[in-house]
Design a protein around this nucleic acid. Structure first.
Lengths: 243, 243
DNA sequence: TGTAATATGTCTTATATAAGACTGTCAACT
DNA sequence: AGTTGACAGTCTTATATAAGACATATTACA
């Protein structure tokens, strides 16, 4: 690849990275499948192996690929591990990470509210599928959750029996609908338990709850899910590392 | 540097990194000062420039050093920028990052409670300096904060006039006491406003507040501060990126 | 007081060697 | 005959080194 002397200069490895990310986004390499070897990619793009490696290393840092010495480079896949460490921050008193069980209460496709349209970047009047569920840790209800996804991305989801909607949603989204959540941003607040929260979580109305407002994005940075979780933080806490 | 064929093999660049971090921790290069050039370090350790670079790059990722092309590598310093982006996660409705003003209410050295001893890894009976303050955003009190530091690390802090204790504490700790906070972990919960919170934050008793329990660590991973913040999240929220 | 040359940094790219993982072959054993 | 284990060959990524490009600050000079 000849270096571009353009005014908006970008290092070679970032250009390669962009090309690879685009191919990944186009689903050329489905989650879990192997990418070509560094040598093959280097030959294809006419750069050195080291340059490809730098691009791949950067992609690994963003959890877009997984690399294993002697095996190869693989398109990232959603695993329970990843759900646990990247996307689930509620920890028990004993400092143990643990995925909650989940019980789906309802699942239906409806016309999106204005708020949902903004959060999911949808046209006014578009359809969303809304899931309401309770999540349990150590057998006790801890999270009351309401989440919305664009129906267009998940056709037929609302017609599935609710016991068929599994616990770790992002694995399910990827495996069944080819929608890959790679990134999310959360906003946290303290709120009072509503009557509904109170019933679902077995707490008094007005109990302080931790409200987590999450927007999940795919590899193209388009929102694919919006969820609001209300967490009872008597026996659990939200953990965050600052580094 | 000859490679060690020891059973617990570690790559060269991680060994170099450990050596550099140790020198940094021993305050050989005070915050803001320049480290020797990559070439000089490479010569000193008898490795190649690229190996030193890999060590330095890893250190930069951890905010231990700052690197600028054409200038050099510098020991990290606490800046307002860093406080804002690394350590302060409370954002306004308009999505603007903004550092709060702070009003110190009290500052005194006392015998540590059992909880403080655990949080700060202190001997029983050790002294801690406790600061109580309120932080304001847009002129309104938003955070009621109680923080403890080992008195041994910050001698004389309790005798300073409280208006001399500045807003951004970590800069102050570094400049005045040589204590550098490089890392922190937080636990978040929802709690009810106590009578004290209510008075300080101008809210009703029982209002849900976001409680942030933070332990701050220095470069040697030893705790140097423990703080408990109670945040009024009506007009602000705690922001977190999941990636 | 500007301005160009120069010195000294880091950044980018390229190349060589090491280490890990799988596959097939072949001999030894059951 | 069938199974097991050692081992070499070959593919992969990981690590180490080196050289040229780029960025910045300083110095020399008009």
């Amino acid at each position: 690849m000849t270096k571009t002397a353009s005014p908006s200069y970008q290092p070679l490895y970032t250009q390669i990275k962009t090309l690879l990310v685009n191919r990944l986004a186009s689903n050329e390499w489905p989650p879990g499948s192997a990418l070509p070897s560094e040598m093959a990619l280097a030959a294809a793009y006419d750069v050195s192996q080291g340059t490809v490696r730098k691009a791949l290393t950067a992609m690994e840092k963003e959890h877009l690929v997984e690399r294993r010495q002697g095996r190869g480079t693989f398109a990232a896949r959603h695993s329970q591990q990843r759900s646990l460490f990247q996307f689930f921050h509620l920890i028990g008193q004993n400092d143990e990470r643990q995925l909650p069980d989940s019980r789906v209460i309802s699942c239906a496709s409806v016309k999106a509210t204005a708020t949902e349209c903004v959060a999911l970047d949808l046209e006014q009047g578009a359809a969303v599928t809304r899931i309401k569920r309770v999540r349990e840790l150590d057998g006790r209800p801890v999270i009351s959750e309401l989440l919305s996804v664009p129906t267009a991305l998940f056709p037929g989801l609302e017609r599935r029996p609710i016991e068929q909607v599994p616990n770790t949603l992002y694995e399910f989204f990827q495996a069944e609908y080819g929608v890959m959540v790679v990134h999310a941003s959360e906003r946290l607040r303290a709120v009072s338990a509503s009557a509904i929260d109170a019933e679902l979580l077995h707490v008094d109305i007005g109990t302080p709850l931790l409200a987590i407002d999450r927007r999940a994005l795919n590899i193209e940075n388009r929102p694919v899910e919006w969820r609001m979780s209300h967490c009872h933080t008597a026996d659990h806490y939200y953990f965050n590392e600052l580094d």
